[in-house]
Design a protein around this nucleic acid. Structure first.
Lengths: 109, 109
DNA sequence: AGCATAGTTCAACAAGATTTGAACTATTCC
DNA sequence: GGAATAGTTCAAATCTTGTTGAACTATGCT
């Protein structure tokens, strides 16, 4: 049957919801890895988080529902893709700023 | 006595903490109102949120601790100021993207 | 000193977010 | 059809956030 994974229309997406979705280390990291704009399989082994697959599914769903990603169903595997162009049109500069910023700062030595 | 309101060194500020701080409608709105870079008094009547002063104090503290604002003590009144230049150097384009994006979208009619 | 004003802190509560494991659905392959 | 693979959903447990009201600290004013 039509198992469908709808993302909200970009016009209805609110900034605060984008921020809430990205205000989590796991999801921020996912988005950074999606930065190339290409679809990435949801397959647990592709992501090296120490999380159960149900937790990973929860984060993927959060990102999709916030309007950040699209889901592409491909037989038995699913892929997610950053909605880079749409997000850029709706919130100019935001995604670039998030992705280009250094992932982490090493402690002062 | 020295009642002090320390903000973290900008170099130690992590993006995810900035995002967590801004992932709340009240705090996002505060930051938008601070966009002019000038100090704004914390005085409850200056902000028209429907919140107790303790809740407002909680949000101001969250923003300061996340590294987003500075506190300026001026006798019995306090002011907060967006750390615009420092944030811009640390996370280029981020604050601009947040501030320039439309505050809200009206529901489709 | 005494009082008013500005703001903070604290404990308690309510509401939300995250994780886990188990059960479930959908798809592919033999 | 049956087994394996990929992913979702659900309830339960736990943790984190935001709000309130009351008590408190600090400063200014008379």
């Amino acid at each position: 049957m039509s198992t469908d994974y709808p993302s909200p229309d970009i016009e209805t997406v609110q900034l605060v919801d984008i921020l809430r979705a990205l205000a989590d280390p796991t999801r921020l990291q996912i988005v950074r890895l999606l930065a190339d704009g290409k679809p990435h399989p949801k397959t647990q082994s592709e992501w090296d988080f120490e999380l159960q697959k149900s937790a990973l599914a929860y984060h993927f769903k959060s990102l999709r529902e916030a309007g950040i990603t699209n889901t592409i169903v491909n037989g038995r595997t699913h892929e997610i893709q950053l909605r880079r162009e749409e997000l850029n049109a709706r919130f100019p500069g935001l995604i670039d700023a998030l992705i280009s910023s250094t992932p982490d700062t090493s402690p002062a030595s």
